[in-house]
């Protein structure tokens, strides 16, 4: 079984202004329907709350440590920001896309990425 990360990208301004009241209920329904393959997930607080650490790779364990440059905001500024994710198990891309099609998402879309487990 392989893993896929389903990332939701959302227009935050539109979402803040006009998020449907029953979106949370839709997610709960999705989670109940796909509980057998869901390995994790959650909604992310708005990208304005993000803190980014850049740099690193010089120490033996590749960690940024004290070299990290700390900045306010997400790693990449985009109109549609990362707004949440689900981690799922699926045997192949078609199965993953079938689950991704059912993720409730407004003002954006989802990206499906294979997870490379060690």
């Amino acid at each position: 079984m392989a893993g896929y990360l389903i990332l939701f990208y959302v227009d935050e301004a539109a979402y803040a202004a006009d998020a449907p009241a029953d979106l949370l209920a839709a997610h709960q329904k999705f989670q109940a329907a796909h509980g057998d393959v869901l390995r994790g997930g959650g909604q992310l607080a708005p990208s304005a709350t993000a803190t980014t650490l850049r740099g690193g790779g010089r120490s033996p364990d590749y960690a940024a440590g004290d070299d990290a440059e700390v900045t306010d905001g997400p790693f990449v500024e985009t109109k549609e920001a990362l707004g949440g994710y689900y981690l799922i198990d699926a045997p192949d891309l078609d199965a993953a896309l079938a689950v991704a099609r059912e993720v409730p998402v407004v003002f954006g879309g989802v990206e499906v990425r294979p997870v490379v487990y060690p």
């Binding site: 192949d92 891309l93 078609d94 490379v116």
Partner: peptide, 14 residues
């Protein structure tokens, strides 16, 4: 290979 695009004829839904 990496995204595991399956090698098969898709089912009726797809």
């Amino acid at each position: 290979a990496a995204a595991r695009v399956p090698y098969r004829v898709p089912g009726p839904a797809e």
